[in-house]
C-alpha cells in the first residue's frame, strides 16, 4: 500500500476524483433515474454476460477437436480444421455475423422443411445467430491455441502412457487433454476479455445487449457522451471482474508441468 501511494500518485488520484466529481455533477445523468431505462440497462448487462459465458464455453468445447485435428489428425481432418481457423481469423467477426444473420437467415423461410420444423420459432430470433457466430469465432482463435498446446505436451508423457498399455482415448482424457488445457489456462483470461469486447457486435443484429441499450438511450434523449461513459464503465467493471476471477482460479490450480 505504501508502495502504491507515492506523493505524485495521491495528486493523480485527487485529479481523477475531481474529474469524476465533475462528470457526476455537471453532466446530464437524469435519464439514469428513469425506471424504464434502469430495467433496460440491467437486462442489457445480463444479456451481454450470458452471451459471453455461453459462447466462451461452446467455443472452447469446439476448439478441442479443432486443435487436436490440426495437431495430430489425418490430413482430411487437419486441412478443414486449418482452413476453418484461417477463415475465422482472417475475416472480421462483424462480417461473419452479418453473413450468418442476413445471408443464411434470409434463406431459411424459403426452405419449407425448416419453416415447418419445430426449430423455426428459434431460428426466427436473432440470438441463435449471435451465439453461433461468436462461438465459432472463439473456436477459430482457440483452436489455433489448442493446436500449439497439444503439440507442446512432452512426447515422453504420451509414450509412457502408451507403453503402459493405456487405450488411446484414456490416454487422451487422462494425460494429453489435461496437460494441454493447463497450458491454455493462462491465456483464457485474456481470451475472455477479448470475447467480452466482441459482444457489442451482436447489437447490429437486433439483440438488446448493454451496448444496444445505451445506443437506444442516446437516440431517445439525444445525449451523446453520458450513456457512452456509463457503457465504458460497465465494460471496465466486467473486465476487472474477469481478470480477478481468472487470477483466483489460477492461484487455485496446481502447476507442475515439466
Amino acid at each position: 500500500m505504501q508502495d502504491f501511494l507515492k506523493p505524485h500518485r495521491i495528486v493523480l488520484i485527487l485529479i481523477a476524483a475531481g474529474l469524476v466529481t465533475w462528470c457526476v455533477l455537471s453532466l446530464n445523468w437524469t435519464w439514469l433515474a428513469e425506471p424504464k431505462y434502469q430495467v433496460l440497462i440491467l437486462q442489457g448487462i445480463w444479456r451481454t454476460l450470458w452471451i459471453l459465458v455461453v459462447t466462451m464455453v461452446v467455443g472452447m468445447v469446439l476448439a478441442i477437436p479443432i486443435g487436436l485435428a490440426q495437431a495430430a489428425g489425418p490430413w482430411y481432418l487437419a486441412w478443414p480444421a486449418r482452413i476453418f481457423c484461417t477463415v475465422i481469423r482472417g475475416t472480421p467477426l462483424l462480417m461473419q455475423l452479418w453473413l450468418l444473420y442476413y445471408g443464411l437467415g434470409s434463406l431459411f423461410p424459403s426452405i419449407p422443411w425448416i419453416k415447418d420444423s419445430a426449430l423455426w420459432p428459434y431460428l426466427r430470433q436473432a440470438w441463435p445467430f449471435a451465439v453461433v457466430a461468436l462461438s465459432l469465432s472463439v473456436a477459430g482463435y482457440e483452436g489455433e491455441v489448442m493446436r500449439g498446446a497439444f503439440k507442446g505436451v512432452p512426447h515422453g508423457q504420451l509414450e509412457a502412457a502408451k507403453s503402459m498399455g493405456m487405450p488411446a482415448f484414456t490416454m487422451f482424457r487422462r494425460i494429453w487433454l489435461p496437460q494441454a488445457l493447463q497450458r491454455v489456462l493462462p491465456t483464457l483470461g485474456g481470451e475472455t476479455v477479448s470475447q467480452l469486447k466482441s459482444t457489442p457486435l451482436v447489437s447490429t443484429i437486433t439483440i438488446m445487449d448493454i451496448y444496444a441499450v445505451t445506443g437506444r438511450i442516446r437516440q431517445d434523449t439525444f445525449i451523446i457522451y453520458e450513456p457512452l461513459l456509463l457503457l465504458a464503465v460497465v465494460y471496465m467493471v466486467i473486465t476487472g471482474l474477469i481478470v480477478l476471477m481468472f487470477r483466483w482460479f489460477e492461484s487455485r490450480t496446481p502447476t507442475r508441468t515439466a
Binding site: 466482441s198 457489442p200 451496448y211 457512452l228 457503457l231 465504458a232 465494460y235 471496465m236
Partner: peptide
C-alpha cells in the same frame, strides 16, 4: 482503459 473497453465503444466515444 483501451484494453478493457470494446473497440466499438471507443470508436463511438472518440468519433464524437
Amino acid at each position: 482503459i483501451v484494453r478493457a473497453v470494446p473497440e466499438l465503444v471507443l470508436i463511438l466515444i472518440l468519433f464524437y
